[in-house]
Design a protein around this nucleic acid. Structure first.
Lengths: 337, 337
DNA sequence: CTGTTAGCGCATTCAT
DNA sequence: ATGAATGCGCTAACAG
């Protein structure tokens, strides 16, 4: 390797002991101002950089976090990542990024690797792992936070920190907006029924409809793949089967864009002939035309809040686990004014 | 801390020496099949995980890479990141992600931190640092690769590995496409003149125009901020000042989307009254209407190739530095058929 | 095949 | 205010 300069070398050149150098480097006291200055001088001239590895071995802390996401190119996760990095940096931590490519097997591997890297804390975003594995893993780690997921069993849920979005509340907000504009025949392009957010948003839709005294129409709900193509296809079929629908609430913005495409195909102008509402407010939402009315999920905050919870836990703060639920904001644009 | 299990503990429980455990863990030979199985059994039952920290201190390798990007939420960088993570994973490496938030000062800090973390290699994406600092930093590190940038001075450039996109070639491709469709009055919404890609794309535009024997019109070139707003504003002004323009080549897709907005304002239908070509092929490009004809920059490959170069360098491969130039592909869609 | 001896580079006692 | 001894958990030479 490149013959790195060590503390011993600095100590030799400065004519002091290793311990004194250590004190100077870490800004601790018990050292005269003069020698400190001198040592700092030597350090600079030698280009010495302390070894985080050696330090971590001695202190049993790495000042390192692990972040696991399903797909970093997804704007949702990239913004969560940004939030995580931002706050980690603020607290002097650095972050290992793991991309699972949606593969639970890789997720497991990454978590294990991060454990071997001795991360001080782990953030699992939209974990695809089953509850048992998840719980087992988290128990092994010094600190861990789930983003975008909670465990279903109450006792288990109580044992793990989490930060999530108010999926149901956001969906209610969106549907209520449509209802307030006079729509009653509102379809729902539902996402994956297995996902946490899929279930939450469906529940919100149902609640809002029910609270308005609207009969439940199973036919108005169409599951679809959470993509533009999925949305386009599902919207096309739904509108054909149920021409009475005057509005569509979509699982996410990609699906909504697909709905936009589909409606233009069947010559229903948005928003005049059909109102469309999305979810997430990804950058795309403001750029398509008509621009999307949508629910803004606080992605960056999701990440930064997770780090806060983690750091609190790492500092051994007392109290039980935290379950933060972040509110969602309705952004009204042209697709459903 | 959580009383972690060490190799010594495993050794004790298995009734062997630490060294034998080490051999079993690392799959080295010089150990009987039976004892290996036994040790592995003990390891599993104890839930032992080797300490990467201790291992790194002993071996002087961390199996870790550092990646520094300006903004992880930018689809360009998030895909580069994905490529990096992918290939790193393939080779058993893990990656520290650093987000500079476009701040050179933070970039410097991150690099220094990663050096202290003893990363085996560093990838600098679209570095904003000045050449001297850059060179100095790279000299300190065991291995480093630049993405999206090369140093201007030949001697310096020869001293650092890099992976870049053929900016000029891509721009030529785009403009030639417009020329081949009969356009001659082609405007250029140029990006930041200080950036590597800004200069490269401008050169490509000029070359293509010149090779077609078209007089140089400085007025046809308008610098603009590389965003939708910047593009919209610049396009509006350019089209007003030069109504003779029948096509616009845009610095990137965001600018092109802005141009789309602007042209609809002045009632020039795309592509009929005005052809528009973007650059990068971000996901948005296919989703706006009309969909964008654009140059696809191989972002994922940019990342994965950088890791390959890095690993080659880390293995102490001989030969001088590599300067890979990745080709760009023209994607023809509706904005300029 | 297995165990022993030495570090890796630093921080944490405890002396001086 | 400074230094010496010891250990963090593991691997790399050597011995046996």
């Amino acid at each position: 390797m490149s013959n790195r300069i060590t503390m011993a070398e600095v100590a030799r050149q400065a004519g002091v002991s290793i311990m004194t150098v250590s004190r100077a480097v870490n800004g601790k006291d018990g050292i005269s101002h003069a020698t400190r200055l001198h040592i700092l001088e030597v350090i600079k001239s030698l280009g010495y950089r302390p070894s985080g590895i050696a330090r971590s071995l001695a202190t049993q802390r790495t000042l390192t976090l692990g972040l696991v996401v399903p797909d970093i190119t997804n704007p949702f996760f990239s913004e969560v990542t940004r939030g995580v990095e931002q706050l980690a940096h603020q607290h002097g931590y650095h972050v290992f990024l793991g991309n699972t490519e949606e593969d639970p097997q890789r997720e497991l591997g990454l978590i294990q690797s991060f454990e071997e890297k001795r991360v001080d804390g782990l953030i699992l975003c939209s974990s695809r792992l089953e509850e048992d594995s998840l719980l087992e893993i988290i128990a092994r780690l010094p600190a861990a936070v789930l983003i975008n997921r909670r465990l279903t069993q109450p006792e288990q849920d109580a044992a793990v920190d989490s930060v999530i979005i108010d999926e149901t509340g956001g969906a209610e907000l969106a549907v209520r907006h449509l209802l307030s504009r006079g729509h009653t025949a509102i379809g729902f392009l539902a996402g994956p029924p297995t996902s946490f957010s899929g279930r939450g948003r469906l529940l919100g839709y149902q609640r809002a409809m029910q609270s308005h005294g609207i009969d439940f129409h199973p036919g108005w709900i169409a599951p679809c793949h959470p993509s533009v193509e999925g949305g386009q296809q599902a919207a096309g079929q739904l509108l054909e089967a149920h021409p009475e629908l005057t509005a569509l609430f979509c699982y996410n913005d990609l699906v909504a864009v697909g709905a936009l495409h589909a409606s233009s195909r069947v010559h229903r102008a948005v928003p005049h002939d059909l109102a469309v509402v999305g979810y997430d407010d990804i950058p795309l939402a403001a750029l398509v035309s008509p621009s999307l009315t949508t629910c803004r999920s606080p992605r960056l905050v999701l990440g930064s809040r997770a780090v806060e919870v983690l750091i609190q836990r790492m500092q051994g703060c007392p109290g039980g686990c935290e379950h933060q639920v972040l509110p969602v904001e309705l952004i009204i644009r042209h697709s459903a004014p």
